[in-house]
Design a protein around this nucleic acid. Structure first.
Length: 237
DNA sequence: AAGTGTATCAACCGCTGTGCT
DNA sequence: AAGCACAGCGGTTGATACACT
């Protein structure tokens, strides 16, 4: 795909469009090395590139950035995407921030390819996620209350605490919760090589795989679906 | 081998938010 | 306060690769 010219040519506005050539990439890379990210509209003036600032920024962010992770989305990343999408919906850039090296475009494309068609499944996953989150928070509250009661008994001092979390802090806290939940997911088994690439029938599953499915089903419990998310996810790899 | 359908992904478009003058 | 430029976001499109018949 790269390095070929498919006749997109120059638009009416004078900007070149279509796939980037290696020469154009090189110019853009040199520009960012010299001037840093930002000031995208000055790229064409300073480099001679016939690309709009918008196009330059997109090319850099989605393809040329050195910290980009190449290769397929891992099962663990997929789990995080599912979780975060259940929380934030189509806020791809927000989701991307939790997946270092992945771009919003990449995640968006991945989502559309793998989950868009099964909106029913995703809706159920979302409902289940929200319920789990609720339960998780209730559990936390209970633990906090127990702890407070304990402290009261010990010191006999009543102390009121008020915590004011910023929205960002709440976001971070939720991310940590999600990360914690994700860390217990069955995909870990798969990453460790305990699960086969594509398993569709329960007869084929090893005991480790059963554990994997059990864990997954416990989380999502999508048995009533036409295709469960667990199976779907595993089928892709 | 050829035709057709589907998946993938780069790149575009339109819109919105933000900062500066 | 208004207007403008720019950056960023989400949705969509189009070309290629791959799978299937």
């Amino acid at each position: 795909m790269e390095g070929q010219y498919y006749g997109w040519g120059t638009g009416a506005d004078g900007w070149r469009k279509g796939p980037w050539t290696p020469q154009e990439d090189q110019l853009l890379i040199e520009h960012v090395k010299l001037h840093g990210e930002g000031r995208w509209n000055s790229v064409s003036r300073l480099t001679g590139l016939k690309r709009s600032g918008k196009s330059s920024r997109l090319r850099w962010v989605n393809y040329l950035r050195p910290d980009l992770k190449r290769g397929k989305i891992t099962p663990h990343e997929e789990t995080i995407i599912l979780e975060l999408h259940a929380r934030w919906g189509n806020r791809w850039s927000t989701i991307a921030r939790s997946l270092p090296g992945r771009t919003d475009n990449e995640i968006k494309n991945y989502w559309r390819t793998h989950f868009k068609k099964s909106t029913k499944n995703v809706d159920k996953a979302r409902a289940r996620y929200l319920r789990l989150q609720q339960e998780h928070k209730q559990l936390q509250q209970q633990q906090q209350q127990q702890q407070q009661q304990l402290l009261l008994l010990e010191s006999n001092i009543v102390k009121e605490e008020t915590t004011s979390l910023t929205e960002e802090a709440i976001m971070v806290q939720e991310m940590q919760e999600i990360a914690f939940m994700c860390s217990n997911l069955p995909f870990m088994y798969q990453e460790e090589g305990l699960v086969g690439e594509s398993t569709t029938s329960s007869e084929d599953r090893s005991s480790e795989e059963e554990t994997c499915y059990d864990t997954w089903d416990n989380l999502w419990n999508l048995d009533d679906m036409e295709i469960t998310l667990g199976e779907q996810a595993l089928t892709f790899y």
